[in-house]
Each structure stands twice: as structure tokens, then as C-alpha cells.
């Protein structure tokens, strides 16, 4: 276990009591800073409506209750015209379809970039690299009109295609890099055996590319599940609001909800992600680290 392993990079770090104490204090400080806001919101959400403004040491409620969660579900349904389960369904549909679409197209396009020849290859690739650095808001206004002309504004397709256009370079970048790292001998052996390029991709490259595809899935999942501005503007019909859009409406509405309901609404969006993260944390951290190295 890595948790029990201590490193040996130089004795002076271990010998110094000052270093030992300073690291403990600083790291503990940051852990508290990170945990406190989340714990505080959780604490607010499980207080009974009568005791919501008071708790022992800011955190431990005098009276536990799930009334705020029931309120949060009712409030969303009445004020937003879209329930929390429906928001989660909308987000799940948009996320799963976008990620599937992007990855299935990237698998083939990245292969063309890594193993095949075509005119303007590197120019096109450079445009893709440049587009990764562009903020999504630059495309907002023209995309809005393109989606209107296509007649798909206010549908799932609008956001799915916008995400696909915006995120496809990430899939292609990561997969191309990975395909090119696969030893030349492996693909060479395939071609000598008379495999077509399609067979080569399917039988040799793809089975090896599973970790790269997993990285893509994680990055694209986070990007699409958490995305806000496209989802807000391209799907203004309340019944197809995604989780962040619905939550932002609850949280910034002029008709203030009470603080318990507010906190419960926020926690409803955080808890599922927390559970998924707890299960797959290694993959999340490895995926985001690998994804960062593409730059």
C-alpha cells in the first residue's frame, strides 16, 4: 500500500522537527479549508427547519431532519417545473450521448492522424490544438444561431452537438498521442500478416488503447456533466434543464428559498458525485493528470 510507504528522499527532511511541524500545520489547515464549506453545507441541509440557524460549533445540528431534502424536491418541481430526478436524467442523457459520440469519432479520426496520410494533416491538427485553448464563450453567439437554423435549439441534440464540436479535439489529441506510443513493431507485424488498416485499428491498437479511452471518458464526463453556459443557453426549456442549470436557477432565483432548502438542493447535486469519486478516485486523479499532459 502506498499509504504506508514512506519515502527516503534525503534524511534532512526527516531530521528537521521544524519541517515536520510546519508541514503538519499547513496541510491540516488546507484540509480544514477544503472540507469545512462542504461539511457546513451538509450540516445546514440536515438541520430541522426550526433549528437551521443554530448548531453546536457551527456544524453539529441540534435536531437532525431530512425535511429540507423533501422541501428541495418539492421546491424544484413547483418553481422550476422540473424535478431533480428529471434533471439528473437530462444530464445523464446529454453526458452519455456526448461522450459516446465524441469517443467513437475520435477513435477513428485519431487513427487517421497517427497512421494514415492525407493532405493538410498537420495544419488541421494545429487548428485542433489551438481550439483546445479557446474558451467556450467565444463560440456562444454563432453556435446559438447555427442551432436555431438547424431547428434543434432547446433539444438534447443542440447541446450534444455543441459539446461534440468543442471537445472532439481533446479526444483526438489524447488518442493520437497514445496510438503513436504503441511500438512500431506491433503495427508492422500486423501489416506483414496482411491485416487491413481497419483490422489493425480494431485488433491491435484499440485493445491496447483502453487506458487512453478511460482517460478520455473521465475527462469528457467531467467536462459535460459540469458544463453550464451552453446547457443554460441552448436548452432554455425547463423540462430539459441539466443539473447545473437547474441548481443555478434555484440558487440565484430572486424568490429566495430558505437556507435549509438551498443547502439540501446543493447537496443533492454534490452527493452523487462524491459517491462516484469515492469509488473511482484513482481513475479520476490519474485521468485528469494524464489529460493535463496533453498540453
Amino acid at each position: 500500500m502506498e499509504a504506508n510507504k514512506t519515502n527516503n528522499y534525503g534524511a534532512s527532511f526527516k531530521r528537521s522537527p521544524i519541517f515536520y511541524i510546519v508541514t503538519r500545520i499547513v496541510v491540516l489547515f488546507f484540509i480544514i479549508i477544503i472540507i469545512f464549506p462542504l461539511l457546513y453545507t451538509l450540516s445546514l441541509s440536515v438541520r430541522s427547519p426550526e433549528t437551521v440557524y443554530s448548531a453546536r460549533y457551527f456544524l453539529i445540528p441540534y435536531e437532525f431532519s431530512f425535511a429540507n431534502y423533501i422541501d428541495a424536491f418539492v421546491n424544484a418541481e413547483q418553481k422550476l417545473k422540473v424535478s431533480f430526478p428529471r434533471m439528473f436524467l437530462n444530464s445523464a442523457v446529454v453526458t452519455s450521448l456526448s461522450v459516446t459520440l465524441i469517443i467513437s469519432m475520435s477513435i477513428f479520426a485519431a487513427f487517421a492522424f497517427s497512421h494514415l496520410r492525407f493532405p493538410l494533416k498537420e495544419s488541421l491538427y494545429n487548428v485542433m490544438i489551438a481550439s483546445v485553448a479557446m474558451p467556450a464563450q467565444v463560440l456562444l453567439i454563432p453556435l446559438f444561431y447555427i442551432l436555431i437554423y438547424l431547428g434543434i435549439i432547446n433539444t438534447y441534440q443542440a447541446v450534444i452537438l455543441a459539446y461534440a464540436g468543442f471537445l472532439i479535439p481533446i479526444g483526438i489529441l489524447i488518442l493520437r498521442m497514445f496510438y503513436e506510443q504503441i511500438p512500431y513493431e506491433l503495427t508492422e507485424a500486423g501489416t506483414v500478416d496482411g491485416a487491413s488498416d481497419f483490422q489493425l485499428l480494431m485488433k491491435v491498437l484499440l485493445p491496447l488503447a483502453k487506458p487512453a479511452i478511460a482517460t478520455c471518458v473521465i475527462l469528457l464526463f467531467l467536462d459535460t456533466w459540469n458544463e453550464f453556459i451552453y446547457a443554460m443557453i441552448f436548452m432554455q426549456d425547463p423540462t430539459i434543464h441539466t443539473v447545473p442549470v437547474g441548481l443555478a436557477k434555484i440558487g440565484t432565483s430572486r424568490y429566495q428559498v430558505n437556507i435549509g432548502t438551498y443547502s439540501a438542493s446543493v447537496m443533492i447535486t454534490i452527493i452523487p458525485v462524491m459517491i462516484i469519486f469515492a469509488v473511482f478516485q484513482r481513475w479520476f486523479i490519474a485521468g485528469m493528470t494524464m489529460g493535463a499532459l496533453k498540453h
Binding site: L139, A164, P169
Partner: peptide
């Protein structure tokens, strides 16, 4: 080669380069 490339490039051009 175009068969591998076209779907991705079409989406990329239509929903990223052209709007940009």
C-alpha cells in the same frame, strides 16, 4: 482515409471552426 476522418472533422468544422 476520409472515412476515418470525415465524421470527426465535419463535427469539428461545423460546431467549432465555423462558429469561431
Amino acid at each position: 482515409t476520409l472515412l476515418y476522418l470525415l465524421p470527426a472533422v465535419f463535427i469539428f468544422l461545423t460546431f467549432n471552426v465555423i462558429p469561431g
